[in-house]
Design a protein around this nucleic acid. Structure first.
Lengths: 240, 240
DNA sequence: TCAACGGAAAAAATCGAGATTTTAACAAAA
DNA sequence: TTTTGTTAAAATCTCGATTTTTTCCGTTGA
């Protein structure tokens, strides 16, 4: 079906081998970016034209998105974009902290030189993107998102637990959707680069306790940002 | 699609509303029970006859099983039953302990009387099944499995985190597959009822620390049992 | 005014056939 | 014997058409 079903995040973005995969990728992107807002009805008959595939193919793509919990389906009543709520985002954030800190602990404990090298590389790429972003080059937001994700995945890449990485991947995706929807036009002044730098330094120095506490704060700060940016919004629907 | 995509475990087993759902349920059961052994190629053309549905419908059922990580798919190369390995089961068990203990902690903290009542009921049903099982009534194994799962889900039902419950559901399913495959004809003497009783008592008494430690041991004991039962077996394939 | 009923339109689910890709078998050459 | 290349068979992927279910809306009757 699609290679995203394997837990391992591929460093080189794999080309979609099937139409289902291609539609799945495009749909996922559009949902995370809010093109299809939370709760929206996803009508196969309409979407198949928009994404230029057959009805069956689009159904399969939607089925795959259920794995990511970005789409919910109900028998005989079609599909919807997964709803959002502040409570849900708080939940996501807490579990993310729980899993990601455990993963970082193990990564620091087990990581070898190859892991260090790829982490350095990921951090470098992220730094460059943050540099461009600071110069108000808005067009690079997309690139920054990709590299931010890559950095966070590189941090825990040496964690031997496939399941933690699998769940982390799902939760990160969810977080990203909340971030994008809430912070669309809200800068929220915050020196993210400094945060990343600190996490990076502590990790490379193998100071597990400090790295974990920095990462925790980093993740929680996003929760605060989304909270204050979305005063009263998207409270209409219960989570999922 | 199917109601199993909602995180909430339905107390009343919902009737499948669509053919996809029905095929999904049957397939899932067969994979967990080992009818389709780990690593087996799942050919749509063969299975569609066996499960009496069209090819497209069966494909959709397989796609849904990817959500449960019971099936893995690869573009243009079809589907396979997810492979197993001892390392994978150790991983599953550790994450299960991590999530399930956190869930139990919250359940004990937030659970109301309604939760207590349903827990009592679930424990009672499980006890009865274990009674029958002790009388060597082999035909009730299936029933015991259902009630064991229901009991474990009742324990953490008051945990407000949907995501913990979602992930726990997936991991429990995985555990069940390992247990069934490994312990098919291996009794492994062990007073499971006493373990359940102890967990139940501590939980109702709201003694979080004790309940958590009992639950942890309970889960780890299954790991040991599977370990000793499967000396050298299913080591052929790496996990997933 | 409101609720219940009924029919039409829309949407979802299902299936079977055709197009594309992978796999397997087999022969020829190194 | 092993490797390479060709061909046939099998399996996957894709789509359009049909069947079934849900949803919408206007009508009837209290």
């Amino acid at each position: 079906m699609n290679d995203t079903t394997t837990t391992l995040p591929t460093t080189t973005p794999v080309e979609p081998k099937t139409l289902v995969e291609a539609a799945y990728n495009r749909l996922r992107r559009d949902i995370i970016e809010g093109v299809h807002p939370p709760g929206e009805k996803l009508r196969v008959e309409h979407l198949k034209d928009q994404y230029e595939v057959g009805a069956g193919t689009l159904r399969e793509a939607l089925l795959l998105l259920i794995t990511d919990a970005l789409v919910v389906g109900q028998g005989q009543r079609g599909f919807r974009v997964a709803p959002i709520s502040l409570a849900d985002f708080e939940d996501i954030t807490r579990i993310r902290v729980l899993l990601e800190t455990e993963a970082l602990r193990q990564s620091i404990a087990f990581g070898d030189e190859a892991w260090e090298a790829s982490l350095v590389a990921a951090f470098h790429r992220l730094s460059r993107a943050e540099q461009k972003l600071a110069e108000h080059d808005v067009s690079t937001t997309e690139e920054w998102e990709l590299r931010n994700r890559a950095f966070h995945e590189a941090l825990i890449a040496a964690c031997p637990s496939r399941w933690i990485r699998h769940f982390q991947h799902i939760l990160y995706q969810q977080s990203e959707r909340y971030r994008r929807i809430s912070l669309l036009r809200q800068p929220i002044p915050r020196d993210i680069h400094a945060e990343h730098q600190a996490i990076f330094d502590a990790t490379l120095a193998r100071e597990a306790t400090r790295a974990i506490s920095l990462l925790t704060e980093h993740i929680l700060r996003t929760l605060d940002a989304v909270k204050s940016a979305s005063v009263g919004s998207f409270s209409r629907g219960k989570a999922r």
